[in-house]
Design a protein around this nucleic acid. Sequence first.
DNA 1: AAAATAAGTTAGGCATACCTAAATTTTTGC
DNA 2: GCAAAAATTTAGGTATGCCTAACTTATTTT
Lengths: 217, 217
Amino acid sequence: MSTFSEQNYLKTIFHLEQSGGDAGTTDIARIIGNKAASVTEMLKKLSDKKLITYQKYQGVKLTSKGRTNAIGIVRKHRLWEVFLLQQLGFAWDEVHDMAEQLEHIESDELVNRLDKYLGNPKFDPHGDPIPDKNGKIVNHKSLLLSEGTLKGKYILAGVSNHNNLFLKHLSELGIRLNDVITVKSIMDYDKSIAIVINHKTIILPHQVACQLKVIKA
Amino acid sequence: MSTFSEQNYLKTIFHLEQSGGDAGTTDIARIIGNKAASVTEMLKKLSDKKLITYQKYQGVKLTSKGRTNAIGIVRKHRLWEVFLLQQLGFAWDEVHDMAEQLEHIESDELVNRLDKYLGNPKFDPHGDPIPDKNGKIVNHKSLLLSEGTLKGKYILAGVSNHNNLFLKHLSELGIRLNDVITVKSIMDYDKSIAIVINHKTIILPHQVACQLKVIKA
DNA sequence: AAAATAAGTTAGGCATACCTAAATTTTTGC
DNA sequence: GCAAAAATTTAGGTATGCCTAACTTATTTT
């Protein structure tokens, strides 16, 4: 149906759309790791296939068909991540590269059985929602810890940075998904936040706090 | 390291070597589904990479490096087949195409953890041996049911034809891996064989019997 | 052993998906 | 609003891996 490369582009455009902005050539190039010229070329191809709408110099948008396609890839990626963590015991900073390969395995029956096998999980190890087989995505409305109020109690619902080093750093700080976080103080000086998590007090730089998605406890 | 295509060629050459003959261009082309000219081209590339030894018009042989490589792919293929059958409940005639994709996932850690997760299985759903992490393969010395003796009791240890329709046919006849097979009579006329399996008597055409690998019970 | 057939190779093309360098369009800063 | 900077596209090139058609080598048949 579509090549690995096309799938990667669609997924990337989907992620860019999810995080607010519209997808520009340079953004896509940066994320995928290709040069802008290569991206332009692929955008033309995806446009010809009616997977995106594309007007020169104006950025791109997924069509309904393109979005369905992208969501299918995201679904597979996140389900395989759950498998790797839950069944094979990998850590959350180890699963990305493998899932990046596994997301391209083609078989609807396989992904649906995997879903069931894993107990129809709603979120992946990074707290991202797993689309159901119809492509429906339930987003829980989280805020960033950096936007939290003093004395607030929160639950860590996700991370917006999937970088392996960042994830490993959180692990080393003893911060895990679904942990309860209590905001103790917010420093005027640099917006760093003192939190209590698992009976430990940690000062989180703003740069870290603004990557943590939380919901009110 | 190597492309999907290269991996497919190595695997194919490995299978051809396993089944006795040396691997010729046309055989490889037939199995992979490419034209002979394309095969010749790839053989040159594999030879340049020291994965096979190749002399024009003389067929090919895997080098030690090539064999190690091929065994790695076979190991992954067979482990994923076990996963699909044992964990996800697929039938033995459904797993091949998916395993064909999964065998290309690159991560030694993943395959080793999968191996352990599955209980270090020694054979795949078709009775083929699964190489261990060092590439060691234990072949059980089986014979073909078509070579069996009258009144012999055998255990179905494998099938030498992995065609989906053939496998489905066996399932429909109620023939499964590890079943006990008793040879009741062998017809002079066409070498077809009457067997008893799971208390049922079945007449197997020679064409079927010679695809069943059995060991003495 | 020569002729016929089969097997394998070479030559020249094509599509995908990258690239660099140069040209163009859009955005930004003054 | 105009020039500089940034973003994007075009043009032309490369490697992979496939193809067909024509040719060469090996094998089989008689």
